[in-house]
Design a protein around this nucleic acid. Sequence first.
DNA 1: CGGATCGTTAACCATTAGGTGAACTATAGC
DNA 2: GCTATAGTTCACCTAATGGTTAACGATCCG
Lengths: 104, 104
Amino acid sequence: MVNDPFKALSHPIRRGIVERLAAGPATVGEATAGFGVSKPAISKHLKVLEETGVVQRVVEGRTHRLSLEPDVLSVAADWMDRQRALWGRLFDVVDEYLKEEGSP
Amino acid sequence: MVNDPFKALSHPIRRGIVERLAAGPATVGEATAGFGVSKPAISKHLKVLEETGVVQRVVEGRTHRLSLEPDVLSVAADWMDRQRALWGRLFDVVDEYLKEEGSP
DNA sequence: CGGATCGTTAACCATTAGGTGAACTATAGC
DNA sequence: GCTATAGTTCACCTAATGGTTAACGATCCG
């Protein structure tokens, strides 16, 4: 089970899916068309995104509706906040270091 | 050759190394102590970070001095800017989506 | 010189990741 | 009921990751 968002986004196809879903919810077919890989491959990428909480899935008949976060308070937002916090912290310390190095 | 920063940061040990170097330059031993893996393993992680331009290395006698960016205008800053741009774009579209979904 | 230290390279191994085609499940629609 | 469609699961393959031990290269220091 993957639960590391860095790892979840380490593959270009998964980042592509996230960017598409960011434009709005979509079915699996809509969100993943044109990546040039087979359906099983897509299925695996979706599983990773789902397991990390990046993507949510609602089965609607025979199609699956994917979304980053239908409820604003839910998974994706938390995930993004966690990422922002992480990267923010990283940027802060690096910025400080660069500032110190820049004018000693 | 790895040149995808997402991939470079997809391993916790590599993120750990970056965070330590963010506090200032250090030798390999200083920057990588306590990760509980062997030296060859460390060496490989450093190679990945170096190849992506995240970390720079200067050989000083028998030790190697690692830094995120000794010259403010150089590799790490570019890398960070690229990351910020990428994530910024991602956050923008997702934010917009959430806003639209939040009050329709 | 000789030994200790810092770090890499080489060779190898196990696991995971990413891909495939084939078969399957389930719904939609005629 | 039959067929097409959406998507997953299964079994399999290959390549890349991440780790190891052993040997090596280079430098420091007594």
